[in-house]
Design a protein around this nucleic acid. Structure first.
Length: 289
DNA sequence: CAAGAATCCTGTCAGC
DNA sequence: TGCTGACAGGATTCTT
């Protein structure tokens, strides 16, 4: 039984994090941890003091996702706060079946011999502890904006948030304090599906455009979660990888390709790439206005 | 105060 | 073939 997998190198955004959380839930919920280990002092930040000892012997009671964070609740009243960063993944395998994979910085063994490893080559991820009752006051969670899949995220909510912004809509949607969980890929995709140019000033979007944008953000995320959920079935095995799944992006990474939104139209020169706030933006200048 | 740039990190890939 | 450099970007920190 060897690992594993081919890694698709995209970064985890809300749907990927949701998928990883569901995978962890399936494997860990209700199980007691026999041992927890960390294999280096830090990822993005130092591991919290006592992390391994706090986890050892605890039973995993539940999970929650907030933005791109995974909260793993323990029966001791503590929650583990995971962020996958750019390259974080969770590897599941039978305890003792394999050597520790490269870049596995934290390892959890359950009493029934399941091992979950947190792998993060670029080490942009993080792990922290907080009282479950105070999860939302954690410094990384306190400033987060609304969950885009929450019913409260609607056109008036987004309009309100955008009214005072003087940035391009692309930058506003990437701002985790406005809408929490979107990253570069899903912002590009949602703007394309909304036919809104990423360069538009946030405050200039019309009410119909904002309604469309809210709707497309939700649809884009829901579809991606569905893809992740179906890929998860393949991972419900004694060993497997949680973290990434394939998805057919309409614009992301498709510079120079034909635009799916205006096939054959003479005015369409295909997908363009520009840089906004130091990040690549992919869009169709013909279809997105 | 807000917006943008710099920063952290390493696997991947284009180019020589 | 093997090396070098550019590139990817989430979220904080720094600078303008």
């Amino acid at each position: 039984m060897g690992p594993l997998y081919s890694v698709i190198c995209i970064m985890p955004e809300l749907p990927e994090v949701e998928t990883v959380m569901r995978g962890l839930q399936a494997v860990l919920q209700g199980r007691q941890l026999r041992r927890a280990q960390v294999h280096r002092p830090d990822l993005r930040w130092p591991f919290p003091v006592g992390l391994a000892s706090e986890l050892t012997g605890a039973t995993v009671s539940g999970f929650r996702r907030r933005a791109k964070y995974i909260l793993m609740r323990l029966d001791t009243g503590l929650s583990v706060v995971f962020h996958l960063g750019m390259s974080g993944r969770m590897l599941i395998r039978p305890t003792g079946a394999n050597d520790r994979p490269a870049h596995e910085h934290m390892t959890l063994d359950t009493v029934d011999d399941i091992t979950v490893g947190f792998v993060d080559p670029r080490r942009f991820g993080s792990v922290d502890l907080i009282d479950t009752q105070r999860e939302d006051t954690h410094r990384l969670l306190a400033g987060l904006g609304i969950e885009p899949l929450d019913d409260a995220f609607d056109a008036s909510c987004l309009a309100n948030a955008l009214a005072s912004k003087r940035t391009p809509i692309k930058a506003a949607l990437l701002d985790q304090g406005i809408v929490a969980g979107l990253g570069n890929i899903y912002v590009c995709e949602a703007l394309f599906r909304s036919a809104i140019a990423p360069t538009r000033l946030s405050s200039t979007l019309s009410p119909p455009e904002i309604r469309r944008l809210v709707s497309e953000i939700k649809a884009t995320l829901i579809e991606a979660i569905a893809v992740g959920g179906s890929s998860l079935r393949d991972y419900v095995q004694p060993d497997g990888e949680l973290g990434y799944f394939q998805h057919a992006w309409k614009v992301y990474g498709r510079e120079g390709e034909r635009c799916a939104g205006c096939p054959g139209e003479p005015g369409c020169a295909g997908i363009a790439r520009i840089v906004q706030s130091g990040r690549s933006t992919f869009y169709c200048p013909h279809a997105q206005r």
